[in-house]
C-alpha cells in the first residue's frame, strides 16, 4: 500500500478514457441493482439481472479480467437467466411483500458485511502491483515455466488443465453431477416432467403467492392490480 511507485495510477490514470468507461459501467450497475430491488415483478427482475450480468462482464473486461468476464457472460447472462425463468415456472411471478422488521435486520446485516468487505480491501495490494503476493510467488513460476513445460500459449489453460489438473477434474465431476441432478429434478427431456410441472401448481389458486401457472384467470387484473408493488412504490 505504501509502495512509492503506485501502480494503480500508472495503469489507470484517471484521465484515461477507460477509467470513465469503468465509472459509467459502475454507475449503471448501481442503477440496475436499485431498480431490481424496487421491482416486485419477478420477470422484470430476471430481465434486469441479465442486463446486470452483461454490464458487469463488460466491467471485468475493463479490469483486464477477461477469463472472469467469459464466465460471467456464459453463466450470468446465459444460463442463470434460463434457470431463473425455469424456476419462475414453478413458483410465483411476483415477490411477496416483506415485513419491515426483517428489512431492518437485513439492512444491518448488509451494512456489517459490506463494511467488513470494504475494510478487507484496504489491505489488498494496489491494482497491478508487481510485488503483490499473487504476482510474486507461485504466479510468477506459472508465468515463467508454463510455456516451457506445457507448451500451451494460454497460461490460464495450463494452470487449470495441467498444474491443477486433478482439482479441475474434481470440479468438472461435481458440476456435471449437479447438472444431471438439476435435469432430473426439472424433468427436462422427459414427458412426465413437463406434465407434472403443469399439474401441481393448478391446485393452488391465489394470485400473489400462487404459482404462475395456477393463477386464476382474473381478466381485469391488468393495470390496476392491488398487488404488493402498489404498497412498495
Amino acid at each position: 500500500m505504501n509502495d512509492p511507485v503506485s501502480f494503480a495510477t500508472e495503469f489507470h490514470p484517471s484521465s484515461s478514457p477507460i477509467f470513465f468507461v469503468e465509472l459509467a459501467i459502475l454507475t449503471l450497475l448501481v442503477i440496475t441493482s436499485i431498480a431490481m430491488l424496487r421491482m416486485r415483478r419477478l420477470f422484470g427482475v430476471v430481465m434486469l439481472s441479465g442486463i446486470y450480468s452483461f454490464l458487469s462482464a463488460a466491467f471485468f473486461v475493463a479490469l483486464d479480467a477477461v477469463d472472469v468476464a467469459f464466465t460471467e457472460a456464459a453463466v450470468g447472462a446465459g444460463i442463470s437467466t434460463v434457470l431463473m425463468l425455469s424456476a419462475m415456472l414453478l413458483t410465483a411471478r411476483r415477490e411477496k411483500p416483506y415485513a419491515p422488521g426483517h428489512a431492518a435486520l437485513a439492512a444491518v446485516v448488509c451494512v456489517i458485511v459490506g463494511g467488513a468487505l470494504i475494510y478487507a480491501t484496504l489491505d489488498a495490494p494496489p491494482y497491478g502491483d508487481a510485488a503483490a503476493p499473487a504476482n510474486s510467488y507461485v504466479g510468477q513460476a506459472y508465468v515463467e515455466r508454463s510455456a516451457v513445460e506445457i507448451s500451451m500459449p494460454n497460461i490460464v489453460t495450463t494452470v487449470l488443465a495441467s498444474y491443477r489438473g486433478f482439482d479441475t477434474m474434481g470440479e468438472v465431476a461435481v458440476i456435471f453431477t449437479a447438472g444431471l441432478a438439476v435435469m432430473l429434478l426439472l424433468g427436462i427431456g422427459s414427458d412426465r416432467g413437463g406434465k407434472d410441472v403443469r399439474d401441481v401448481p393448478r391446485m393452488v389458486g391465489r394470485e400473489e403467492d400462487g404459482p404462475g401457472l395456477g393463477e386464476k384467470p382474473t381478466l381485469d387484473d391488468g393495470g390496476k392490480s392491488p398487488s404488493p408493488k402498489g404498497g412498495a412504490s
Binding site: M47, T81, V82, L85, S86, L89, L186, G187, I188, G189, S190, D191, G193, G194, K195, V197, R198, L213
Partner: peptide, 15 residues
C-alpha cells in the same frame, strides 16, 4: 430462451 418461456410457458417442448 426467454421468448420460448413466453410463447410456450415452458423450457421443454412437451409442454
Amino acid at each position: 430462451a426467454i421468448l420460448k418461456f413466453f410463447a410456450y410457458r415452458t423450457m421443454s417442448p412437451q409442454m
